[in-house]
Design a protein around this nucleic acid. Structure first.
Lengths: 339, 339
DNA sequence: AATGATCTTGGGAGCGCTCCCATTTCGGGG
DNA sequence: CCCCGAAATGGGAGCGCTCCCAAGATCATT
């Protein structure tokens, strides 16, 4: 068990040549049944495992894909979004017999030091990279290293790039329209950072719904913050001064924070203030009241990212692939009834 | 940029030999400053990256460690525990210049098919594996493949194995003692599965605290379930029939569920029923009321796991390393005041 | 000026695999 | 019974690197 067997050893034991053993392992046709069986026997008896590095050296394939999560990780993993996405990606990798390497960057220094390692040949066959403002620097590096890659979420300043995203504009639009339909007229928005497309797109959907219904867009009704519970809390406190009758919040975690602020102000959800948010992660069901929220198909996002990346690995990066998933408004209690 | 440079190419461009370039890259001493600089220049001009597979083939080191999360992943990533642990592990990997490969198994079939791949030579230098009942089968496999490994959490039936865990017995003991100190006398327990050491150890701590204080141990006051919010909810509903005045819950997520059940029964936390739980994950702060809970040093757990694994890789698996971290009771509102 | 000792450099060998081409084996038709 | 094409098998070359040993350069010492 502690030995270091090679193809040659197996060949000797089975009384055949190295090439034949290789053929058996790689399930190629032209091997007689009798020989194939004998070799298989020896392989299982010796518990032989071919050396992956040697294979990679000649085939130029590692069967590993990298998942890169740029800086601001701290925010990331506090949010259940990323674990979910990771699960979807891992599931697809398992299915395709790929390994998944996780690169969580904590600091800019991490990125500077580690990123070149990733794009080194022989480490990964391709990369899935999360779109963030911090990622923008990495895009140029990654592009020039010609490692195949695909972006999770729409990148901000990167044309000709393949990505998989959800339709944030339509999702937000739909959510706000729902609030309007229910009779709310002074709808505030707690937005994600404006230097992310997620933040921008949801603002766009929000504005679109307002103007379609002839409602004024008031700059003071939009607050911008990061995707944390804390951020939502403080943003809501600020917005409450404007006396809105509803808030469209750009993420579930922020909505949890916002509801805390509303409660502390002595107001009630949904009676005084209706709330609709985005994501539909577990906290949305558990909160009190449960959140009406725009569901993202996170698992499918993960699966599609892997599928797209493998396609790019196989067939090259042109033309850029773009996949946009639809969202679905899940109605619970935080938005209230029609007035 | 699209070329496939080798050491030999760099050597030619710099007017030196392959060996010298190798020395420069591996930061070995005996290279004159002038030559070193010239080679570095060429490397950065050409953006050369050495081929990792070729290196691995000769050095027998991949600089990759694998994180294996056995089946029941679905539970895992719904719980913020694993993302946190993963972050700690990733941080330590970054620091040590290792890559982290994530193996999330969803089904038993995954394990059967994928696990042999992982223990294949040339894929990882070592493995961190989460202790679960499902992991037990894997231990034997992993052990006989002689890939270095370390277990996260105390494994159930595995002597001579290295692991890193927190002191679950002491943590639970301390939590329950706190409830007793506050004047509670009929303390129920919602336990994790009895086929995990986490479940068992916390039960042990619970019983220990009761008997120390001369309180009877009533089987009907302990409910067992998985680590989910739902599980906590239904367990609490069952336990409420016994009219306890406190519940020690084996995990924050279950405590959230338990509080929901208590609320629905028209009782109040902590007035009617005091609650103390285990983990101190973000939901513990966000819940209403905030949870008194036993804090686990999850990040440190992750760092130590990597440190231990690297030690084993370097110096061999004997003697087995065992690290047990202390926990800390974080007092918030769910346990109430002294009666 | 010659001699070691030390520092620097070059090239061969080999890691374990896949791929290609050459060779052997086999079976059926003339 | 021989010949030829197809199927099965073997072995060389080479992937890009590290490691080792030998050779060349450099310098102080006698």
């Amino acid at each position: 068990m502690t030995d270091n067997l090679t193809l040659e050893d197996i060949a000797r034991l089975a009384g055949v040549s190295r090439s034949t053993v290789s053929r058996v392992i790689n399930e190629q046709e032209s091997v007689s049944d009798e020989v194939r069986q004998r070799v298989r026997q020896v392989i299982s008896e010796t518990d032989f495992r071919p050396n992956q590095a040697a294979r990679t050296l000649v085939t130029r394939r590692t069967y590993v894909i990298g998942l890169v999560i740029p800086r601001s990780t701290s925010t990331f993993f506090a949010d259940p979004y990323f674990p979910r996405l990771t699960m979807g990606i891992a599931e697809a990798c398992n299915r395709a017999n790929y390994s998944l390497s996780l690169y969580l960057f904590h600091t800019e220094e991490d990125e500077k030091r580690l990123f070149p390692r990733i794009t080194r040949k022989g480490l990964v066959d391709g990369i899935i990279i999360q779109a963030t403002q911090a990622a923008d620097v990495l895009f140029t590096q990654i592009a020039k290293s010609d490692v195949p890659y695909v972006v999770a979420g729409r990148p901000l300043n990167a044309p000709n790039v393949s990505y998989v995203d959800v339709d944030n504009v339509a999702g937000a639009h739909n959510a706000v329209r729902h609030l309007i339909r229910l009779g709310r007229r002074k709808i505030a928005h707690i937005a994600g950072p404006r230097d992310t497309t997620v933040g921008l797109d949801r603002i766009e959907g929000y504005c679109k719904a307002l103007s379609e219904s002839g409602l004024a867009i008031d700059e003071n009704l939009t607050a911008e913050c990061d995707f944390t519970e804390e951020g939502g809390y403080y943003s809501a406190r600020r917005l409450l001064a404007q006396k809105p009758d509803a808030i469209f919040v750009g993420a579930d975690m922020m909505a949890i924070g916002a509801m805390r602020a509303v409660r502390e102000a002595g107001l009630r959800v949904p009676k005084d203030i209706a709330i609709v948010s985005f994501d539909d992660l577990p906290p949305a069901t558990l909160s009190n009241p449960p959140l009406t929220t725009v569901r993202q198909p996170i698992r499918r996002l993960g699966l599609k990212l892997v599928e797209t990346l493998l396609d790019i690995i196989e067939n090259g990066p042109t033309p850029p692939r773009r996949v946009i998933f639809d969202t679905e408004l899940v109605i619970r209690e935080s938005c209230g009834e029609r007035r």
